[in-house]
Design a binder for these strands. Sequence first.
DNA 1: CAATATCGCTAACGAACATTAGCCAAAGCA
DNA 2: TGCTTTGGCTAATGTTCGTTAGCGATATTG
Lengths: 201, 201
Amino acid sequence: METSTKEKILDVALDLFARHGYEGTSIDMIALAAGIKGPSLYKHYKSKEAILKALIKDAEDYYVERFYAAGDNQKYPENIDQMNKMIFAKVKLTLVDPKIQKTRQFLTQEQYRSPEIAELATKYNIILLQSRLKRFFEVMIDAGVLEKGHVGLLALEYAAPISVFVQLYDRFTSPSKRKNIMGYIKAHMTHFGEMYGKKKK
Amino acid sequence: METSTKEKILDVALDLFARHGYEGTSIDMIALAAGIKGPSLYKHYKSKEAILKALIKDAEDYYVERFYAAGDNQKYPENIDQMNKMIFAKVKLTLVDPKIQKTRQFLTQEQYRSPEIAELATKYNIILLQSRLKRFFEVMIDAGVLEKGHVGLLALEYAAPISVFVQLYDRFTSPSKRKNIMGYIKAHMTHFGEMYGKKKK
DNA sequence: CAATATCGCTAACGAACATTAGCCAAAGCA
DNA sequence: TGCTTTGGCTAATGTTCGTTAGCGATATTG
């Protein structure tokens, strides 16, 4: 029910790091947001760096868990329309989930701090989505509902515009802009389906 | 010939901001890199914030100048192959140019600091390239060398993978990885041309 | 040539930083 | 029940931060 202070610290640290960056966030800011005083924080983590490390590990677990959530990782779409629906649902989930969103913003800002963070940012931004799409395309080509093609490039060309829109979504907080972005993502998916999909039976 | 101290400060500040972020860079670091002592810096800029402002303005001018450089902004490609060559040259230029590269990394890290920076990051990352492509597509469709289609979405689907690869290029410093990325960009362009281009006459 | 502006320096400021020491109450455990 | 761990606190440490004051040399200008 109630979260432990240790977890609460990670929670508020992610929020602060996402908004102000690691260097722009002080121990006192984190402690205050967690409802304790600065020095008390050291009962839970031995340094600011340790919070960062724990945060990265925690965020990684959470993201992967969510991305492969709800048992739908076994299902494959039977056509592009179905794929669009599946991917859009997944994208919307990661767009809206506050923890995932903050993780993206945090990774974006700290990506040049270490190769590890750079790797993680790449994974979240494009790799996970693209590799899943690649498998979808392979299955659909095998099933004959999609023309043969370079599945890696196809997946990239489907995923990259989404990735770009996700970045725009994170950058702009206005609800109307965000709603528009959702629309653009849908439009791109539909457009892609029309261009690459085989002509209706 | 020799650059003034004032310019040198902006130069090294961009480098430091790109590598360590704004908060992660101190006045002393900037001054030292510029060959003076911290307090002397205040003879040129009245605050750290003022350096940031000047930097943004300067970077903006430089980028736009480079992007529209060399008088080729009037030329339009006659087919997709030609467009690929033109765009690749332009992309390579912005990839390799140290100042533009640092500006991208700086904007990426500081984009959540202010709406102004967010806007600028968006412009550099996708808008400039996409709007140029849109015009190219319009011209080529008018000339009949390309099938009709939603030029905005076409431009996005051409530009977004490039944008994603540029980000990867910035993230990974290894020369071999960077060379690979150049190859991927070319592969994407070729692939796009094959998929969307009209069948050879 | 004298007056002034420019641009470097050192010294010093107060504030904020991450972190440590040590104290105390409550909870867990023997 | 007594002992120990846990987790909060205040006080304080030393460092680094951005910035100001003021000094002196050199370059610019009247």
